[in-house]
Design a protein around this nucleic acid. Structure first.
Length: 320
DNA sequence: AGGCAGGTGGCCA
DNA sequence: TGGCCACCTGCC
């Protein structure tokens, strides 16, 4: 492998606008805590890609800085604040959660001060979470990386393959290394996915999820503008529409609306949240649907934000 | 070495 | 409506 591709230049580091000063842990939890599957960390620098954008982030003396590939710098300067939802008052939003009357929530919020919900591209969020069924974050990232490398357009940005990283003849990083440190391609669009045989999708370690992604791609290809329209519909209507897609159930629909459309009322209930509410709120044995109802009732219109704090807490190393 | 993993859909009573 | 189970496959 040549090194030529890594010669492209990055812009100069610049402070991120706004007043977000996350700790290293909170930054990691936000970028790599299961909302997005396209950020990779190396040597204190986070590299991520979404839509036609790529960016790097680093924390220097408690200040968050960013840079982008030079040709993209202008675009990213606009797109990154939106992606990171810098325009929303997260301090105020978090303050309006019912932590004053909920000691466990207060503990979670205190443990991850400044945690926020990303605003990712809607279609990419859908793809990521269609990969997510009964998979761990590392494996989901691997699937997304393979989809991007094999079926997405090359990005207009410097290659991010760590020097000397061995690759097998199929282009997959060897699984034993579990390195997902490449963000060299865009994710395929839904239009691109629609013409990929299901068998090729399965080869990206998708397993039975390949059928759902293929089916969703075909569904969307037959309905131009359907997904874009869905993004801007009211929450309940948008959710009902997402549930029409093969492989999209309650949980994934809520993830897409929460992480890909900024709908903080969406309250995805996965196994972690199920465990959290069982253990911390006495809902042992409850099924996902009643738990979701409890969550929306108890946490209110920003239940999705509360969910992210609970999720982060429950996932802590050695978490109990 | 076999069960389990950020779910969903289909089939039964 | 509610409870089960198959679905792919890599990893602990």
């Amino acid at each position: 492998m040549t090194r030529q591709e890594s010669q492209a230049a990055w812009s100069n580091w610049k402070p991120l606008p706004g007043d977000w000063h996350p700790s290293r842990d909170v930054l990691a939890e936000t970028l790599d805590g299961g909302q997005s599957f396209r950020w990779h960390h190396a040597d204190g620098i986070w590299t991520g890609a979404w839509a036609g954008c790529a960016a790097q982030l680093r924390l220097l003396d408690g200040t968050l800085q960013w840079r982008a590939p030079k040709p993209l710098a202008k675009t990213v300067a606009t797109a990154l604040p939106r992606y990171l939802a810098l325009d929303r008052d997260w301090t105020g939003l978090t303050d309006s959660l019912p932590w004053r009357s909920d000691a466990h929530l207060a503990q979670c919020v205190a443990a991850f001060p400044g945690l926020r919900i990303l605003r990712q591209p809607f279609g990419e969020t859908l793809l990521g979470f269609l990969c997510s069924a009964t998979k761990q974050i590392g494996q989901i990232k691997q699937m997304c990386a393979l989809l991007a490398e094999r079926h997405g357009l090359p990005g207009d940005w410097p290659g991010q393959t760590p020097a000397g990283q061995p690759r097998d003849e199929l282009g997959a990083l060897s699984m034993s290394k579990r390195q997902t440190g490449t963000v060299r391609h865009r994710l395929p669009t839904w239009a691109e996915l629609a013409v990929i045989p299901e068998k090729e999708l399965r080869a990206c370690l998708l397993g039975f999820r390949a059928k759902y992604i293929h089916g969703t791609a075909k569904f969307l290809a037959a309905r131009p503008g359907w997904l874009e329209a869905t993004e801007s519909l009211p929450y309940s209507v948008a959710k009902a529409r997402l549930l029409e897609l093969p492989g999209v159930g309650e949980k994934i629909a809520d993830c897409v609306l929460l992480f890909g459309a900024g709908r903080l009322e969406a309250f995805p209930v996965d196994t972690w949240v199920l465990k959290s509410l069982a253990r911390r709120y006495g809902l042992t044995g409850w099924k996902p649907a009643p738990v979701a109802l409890f969550g929306r009732t108890h946490f209110g219109p920003l239940a999705g934000l509360a969910q992210q704090y609970l999720f982060a807490w429950e996932r802590r190393p050695g978490g109990r």
